[in-house]
């Protein structure tokens, strides 16, 4: 239990997808102009992470890993293709399910869902999960040793991403009223803002969980 909690808290604040690993930057920069849409995308990313990471975890442990499917066979080289296929498939599936059962949520998330398939944060979470499976849970707070851990990690990463995008959107809404040098306007100042936010988040790296 302790391991679950520290994994969860750590993946929100310390191993933050945006501030520590810069994953999902493309949509992060493009969709952070106002808080409401940012929140929508954040929720959608969290949701897709929650589904894809455990599925990819199952694939990694029961199919791809060394000696998982057939004794003596290591299929890890197929990981990239399978993971991206799972992500693309699940995004498609989630889109259809949401459309069928909750049209209002679909209307809110609609345009963001297809974008998520090429969001680096989703693929990144699966690849980090693949790395962390090899770690020893006794020595490492980052290790993922079961479905519980995989879900906690996915949820934590998603919430971390959500926090980051909502935070940036709020700052950018306020920044509209400031006098920024002309060549720096728009993209340039956004990068620098994200850099400063990342520095603030670095304080969490000293947390002893």
């Amino acid at each position: 239990m302790e391991h679950l909690i520290s994994l969860f808290v750590r993946s929100i604040f310390v191993d933050n997808m945006i501030f520590a690993f810069f994953l999902g930057m493309c949509s992060y920069l493009a969709v952070s102009k106002n808080v409401k849409t940012a929140l929508g995308l954040g929720v959608a990313v969290t949701f897709v992470l929650l589904v894809t990471v455990p599925v990819d975890y199952a694939l990694q442990t029961y199919v791809l890993g060394p000696n998982a499917l057939v004794e003596g066979v290591d299929l890890t080289f197929l990981a990239f293709i399978l993971f991206i296929a799972v992500i693309a498939g699940i995004v498609q599936l989630v889109e259809m399910v949401v459309e069928r059962f909750s049209p209002s949520l679909y209307a809110a998330l609609g345009i963001f869902l297809p974008l998520i398939a090429v969001n680096c944060a989703i693929m990144g979470a699966s690849l980090f999960m693949q790395q962390r499976v090899q770690m020893d849970p006794e020595t490492s707070t980052q290790a993922i040793a079961g479905f519980g851990d995989a879900i906690a990690y996915a949820l934590g990463s998603g919430i971390g991403w959500l926090l980051a995008i909502v935070g940036l959107a709020a700052i950018r809404e306020k920044m509209a009223y400031t006098d920024v040098p002309k060549p720096l306007q728009g993209l340039g100042i956004t990068f620098i803002t994200v850099g400063l936010m990342a520095m603030a988040f670095m304080c969490f790296s000293g947390l002893n969980i």
Binding site: F22, L184, L187, G188, F191, I192, G195, L196, M199
Partner: peptide
């Protein structure tokens, strides 16, 4: 890592 964002910001500038 944070500095790389700020440098990219400056490059764009």
């Amino acid at each position: 890592p944070a500095m790389s964002l700020i440098i990219v910001g400056c490059v764009i500038w």
